[in-house]
Amino acid sequence: MNLDQLTEGASARIVSIDDGVADLAAKLREIGFCEGDDVQLLTRGPLAGQPLAIRLNRRIIAMRREEARAIQVDQSL
């Protein structure tokens, strides 16, 4: 499942980052997203459920659905 599909408050582990869009993948990695990291969808924006506030380890990063879709997560790990 993708990061944007998490329900609010749910945590998961990153299993892969979509390299299809190279530029986006590089941006996500540079800001810190990495396989094996712990993420949580904290909250969604007030309008149309965008943007998403994502907790990555000990920081919070805002992104839209488009960016979150490039991150695959697993809730069972």
Binding site: K27, I61, R64, E67
Partner: peptide, 9 residues
């Protein structure tokens, strides 16, 4: 464009 913005502590 993509949005990737930190919400600092």
């Amino acid at each position: 464009q993509a949005l990737l913005m930190e919400l600092p502590t």
